[in-house]
Lab assay of single mutants.
Amino acid sequence: MFKRLMMVALLVIAPLSAATAADQTNPYKLMDEAAQKTFDRLKNEQPQIRANPDYLRTIVDQELLPYVQVKYAGALVLGQYYKSATPAQREAYFAAFREYLKQAYGQALAMYHGQTYQIAPEQPLGDKTIVPIRVTIIDPNGRPPVRLDFQWRKNSQTGNWQAYDMIAEGVSMITTKQNEWGTLLRTKGIDGLTAQLKSISQQKITLEEKK
């Protein structure tokens, strides 16, 4: 169930391209415009997507990853294993993690069937560096609404905000991946996880038929 919630949630996290980005210092504006741009692209490019579902990787690479804190999220997933990894191991892992996100997020976007969304009203940021933004996803086919909290983090150097995690039903996506990959990290280390991520990233994206 959580895996499905995570995939549905990713439908609204794909941010804007650099040329049309919203105010990078306001995570609420980023979330709002990102959702609108993403849904528009999914709707307008269905012919290309249906002809070649792996085209979704391109959308992810162009529109999402430049505005997601990939390395920060990847380091959180590694936890204690990050500090013990060599620079070469980290570089290989982050490259594999990025390719994994292209496949995983692309597969999530393949679930698009006309969903709509509501974003919580903007709250004062103050001096906060981590801000959760509640998004409610509404399914046109009558499924119950899904309420999610996207975690946005302020870059201490640039002042810009980027998304790095999502919490559904009190469970963090980062925590879920830590639990899912924990045994592999304990037995085969970061190299074993890197190899698995490379394998997963090679899987073809498949479209979910409308139910």
Rank of each mutant, 00 (worst) to 15 (best):
D23G: 11
M166V: 07
V60S: 15
G189Q: 12
A110P: 08
Q123K: 06
Y28G: 09
K154C: 15
Y55N: 11
I137E: 02
D149F: 11
I205N: 15
N44Y: 12
A51T: 13
P140K: 15
N26T: 07
K83I: 09
K3F: 05
P132T: 14
R98T: 11
M111L: 12
V131P: 00
M7V: 06
T20L: 10
R4H: 09
Y117K: 10
L197Y: 11
K29D: 15
P145N: 09
A75G: 05
K177S: 15
G142W: 11
P144Q: 07
Q115S: 03
L11M: 06
Y100A: 12
L10R: 00
E33Y: 04
Y164P: 03
P27N: 02
L185N: 09
D149P: 00
Y67L: 03
L42E: 07
N179P: 00
V8C: 14
T38I: 09
Q157N: 06
K43Q: 08
Y55C: 09
L101K: 04
R134T: 02
L184F: 07
A96K: 03
S84G: 11
R41F: 02
Q24C: 12
L5H: 01
D139Q: 15
I119H: 09
R186Y: 02
W161N: 00
K211S: 09
L197T: 15
L65D: 03
A35Q: 08
Q46C: 07
P47S: 12
K198D: 13
A19K: 04
W152S: 03
Q36A: 09
M7Q: 04
A120D: 06
T158W: 05
S201T: 15
T25R: 10
L78P: 01
Y81F: 12
P66C: 05
M6C: 03
F97N: 15
G182Y: 03
R4K: 13
Y117C: 04
Q118P: 07
A51M: 14
I119D: 14
T176G: 01
K71V: 02
G74M: 02
L65T: 12
P140N: 09
D54P: 05
T86R: 05
S199M: 15
D61K: 02
Q62A: 12
T38C: 07
H113I: 06
G114L: 06
P87W: 05
K177F: 13
K211L: 08
T116L: 15
Q115R: 02
P144N: 05
K37I: 08
Q103T: 14
Y93D: 02
S201W: 05
G170D: 02
T158A: 05
K102C: 15
D191S: 06
G182K: 10
K210N: 13
Q36R: 08
A95G: 11
R41Q: 04
A21H: 09
V12C: 11
I137M: 06
D40P: 15
P15N: 10
T175Y: 03
T158V: 06
Q115C: 00
S156N: 02
W152I: 06
A35I: 15
P27M: 04
K210C: 13
Y100K: 02
N141E: 05
R98S: 11
G74K: 00
Q107T: 13
L30H: 07
L109W: 05
E209V: 13
I174M: 15
